[in-house]
Design a protein around this nucleic acid. Sequence first.
DNA 1: TCATTAAGTATGC
DNA 2: GCATACTTAATGA
Length: 229
Amino acid sequence: MPKLDESLLTGLPPFSLLDRAQIREILDQAVSRRYDEGTAIFREGHDADRFHLLLDGYLRVIRSTPGGDQIIVLHISPGQLFGIAPALQRDTYPATAIAAAESIALSWPVRVWDDFIARYPGFATESYKTLGQRLGQIQETLTEMATQAVEKRVACALLRMVHQSGRKSDKGIEIAFPVTRQNISDMTGTTLHTVSRLLSAWQKDGIVESTRKRIVVTNPHALVVLSEA
DNA sequence: TCATTAAGTATGC
DNA sequence: GCATACTTAATGA
């Protein structure tokens, strides 16, 4: 394993208060791995032996319902901790993490978690902050699912992905990772057919432009209006 | 308003 | 050329 460069972690929220030597310590305990698109980093219910940080790429976090179908709970973007079961006092992962695009992640054994919390200033507060934000976001989309019409839910899901991973292209803002209509239906509790119809209609209205697995939002404002309508 | 069924086209390895 | 992604229409809860 090549030595990891310190610049990988400097500036990231959980480590922003640390000096060079401390970041070096942390990196020396880390393992770096690459994941192909579609690969699982860990699976729901499995032994949570490591916690992770995404360096590059995007992840889908999936939970399966008692009914057996899978819903996409949230996405992880670069710089974020994930699989932090120890912060939840759990010894199994509460969800499955799949690489939505080719991704690179660092990981540490869970036994160093308490050590990190104790020794590195800011690590605890930042970790629990992202945890809280995530729970809030999940709860928000959950009530949205229960109360809002399908069109609004899909508009909101697109906007969330744009906010999290949008990058400018010549036509508008492109979602930075591959998304299928099935994926969007898994985020919004509808069918891929309905998502397909909505995207087709929005394309006709000049709001989005999509090819297979790629979506560009050409009129974000119109989408915001739809999400609030 | 939306899911389901069904039957098609398009796309990329 | 096959599997996967996507589209569209029809039907009915």
